[in-house]
Amino acid sequence: MTTHYLVLSALLFAIGGVGVLVRRNAIVVFMCVELMLNACNLAFVTFARQNGSLDGQVIAFFVMIVAAAEVVIGLAIIVTIFRTRRSASVDDASLLKH
């Protein structure tokens, strides 16, 4: 059963990764990142049960905290960028190539 959970986790992670690469809307990209984090959490929780240790759950808990903080900052950045550039597309912020 553990294997199934892990494969599900890997699948969700890969889907999230593809989403990050494919989507241009910064908010959706962000959602995909959240998806990847969630997939990781699932793996942690699964391993916690597999190994009979609470460490996995503790780490998943911390991941959630960090993810919350990340969302706050990330969305604030998106709003700021949108305010100045009138766009939420990640492709528009390509000034680094110059």
């Binding site: 494969v7 890997a10 699948l11 992670f13 890969a14 593809v18």
Partner: peptide, 16 residues
Amino acid sequence: AIVAGIGFAVLLGLGI
């Protein structure tokens, strides 16, 4: 992106 995603998922799944 899709190739890498599928490759990633398959490899990880096989590994697991």
